[in-house]
Amino acid sequence: MEPTFVDRRRLMGAALAWGALSNLPVAQAAELITPSQSRLLVDVVDAVIPRTDTPGASDVGVHRFLVMALEHGLEGSRDPSLPGPKGRDHLDWLAAHLRQTGEKDIARAVAIVDQAAFAAGPASPPTPWTRIKSLILLGYYMSEAGATQELRYELVPGHWDPDVPVSGDNRAWSSDWTALTFG
């Protein structure tokens, strides 16, 4: 799969599938974003999670997941009590802030936006970027490749070992629900 190009037909297909799964009206889902927004999102999600020895974010469709997740208000992205853009308007916010960096290279622009969002420290309240970033991580690490290739997924561990010495492969468990809840 070519990570930097999404053709309109494949995007439509994905949007239709999402629409069917999420009860969102299909016509609305198919019209959620423009091709240029989609191209930008491919670059943005890959800037956060690039392809390495395992697939990157756009390889597993995180750019599409992100749009639906914003549309459905995940991570408080539609919370009326929080300041900032709502739902899909996060994409306009993102495009504007990437432009404001003056960087043509999207990966560098994303790094600048990320730095700015965390400038006040990790405990600062969510910002539009931290919401977007959180959804990129959700889309990736809970995808099949993210959960099972980048991390490890075991639905039925079968036993509990309270002390395992760390060896070569110390990948985290995407199925460690306590870690995900409190981590």
Partner: peptide
């Protein structure tokens, strides 16, 4: 417990280094 990838939501960083950091338990 050891934190998991969700810790990345509150962690600065992007790119291959960030991905590598979230690969192992926090």
């Amino acid at each position: 417990f050891q934190g998991g990838w969700t810790g990345g939501k509150r962690m600065p960083g992007v790119g291959a280094d960030f991905k590598a950091r979230l690969r192992t338990p926090q």
